[in-house]
Design a protein around this nucleic acid. Structure first.
Lengths: 99, 99
DNA sequence: GAGTTATATCGGGAAAAACCGATATAATCA
DNA sequence: TGATTATATCGGTTTTTCCCGATATAACTC
């Protein structure tokens, strides 16, 4: 686990918000109709809510993914992102003991 | 607690190292003779070990302090910095539940 | 096939962070 | 008092991050 990369990923207001939204997708993205939330939330919905351009949000999601904080699943023309909870648990332990 | 400020403070290799060194000052700073380690470690010792300029290290320590990760005590002409463990505990909890 | 929709990537301008050297401040000591 | 030592702050250059518009890719639809 690359702590520095994780902390950099968490050092942005919008990226922190995205992670929070993904914690409760049903509440945060009432408009998503294409799929259940098991696979996550598609980029377009996240982008609308973030209020930034599509390219920026796509970039942010890939930063979060490289840090291991989210994972993605492609379904047809959509890419769904969801939290990777194991990384959060690991991170919490790392802060308790390794930092 | 301002999460964003904390994550930014943790988004730098040298600052992460400083925090690690301050975890075991006796092992990390064998040369410090001016005081016991209860008050912390003085800027000069940290600077030598970091290998950056005095101004940079002083700046880094104040970033860590603004984030609540360390605290400082002035004794004579020295400023001693030590970890603020409560913030780490809080942060770990925040990651478990609030992020 | 061509047209449409969703996402990723690329190139770049603006803002922030990473450092530095020089200088200021504060404490000590002769 | 002046000289010395430790730290903080200030001004500036380089590097990184932020965020955009334009373009590329991939899947779907007709």
């Amino acid at each position: 686990m690359k702590q520095l990369e994780i902390f950099k990923a968490l050092s942005n207001k919008t990226r922190l918000e995205i992670l929070l939204w993904l914690k409760d997708p049903a509440a945060s993205f009432p408009e998503q109709v294409h799929a259940g939330f098991e696979v996550g939330v598609c980029v377009g919905e996240i982008q609308k809510k973030a209020g930034l351009t599509q390219s920026t949000v796509s970039e942010y999601l890939s930063i979060l993914q490289r840090a291991g904080l989210v994972s993605s699943t492609r379904v047809g023309q959509w890419t769904y992102y969801k939290r990777n909870e194991e990384t959060f648990v690991e991170l919490s332990k790392i802060i308790e003991s390794d930092i």
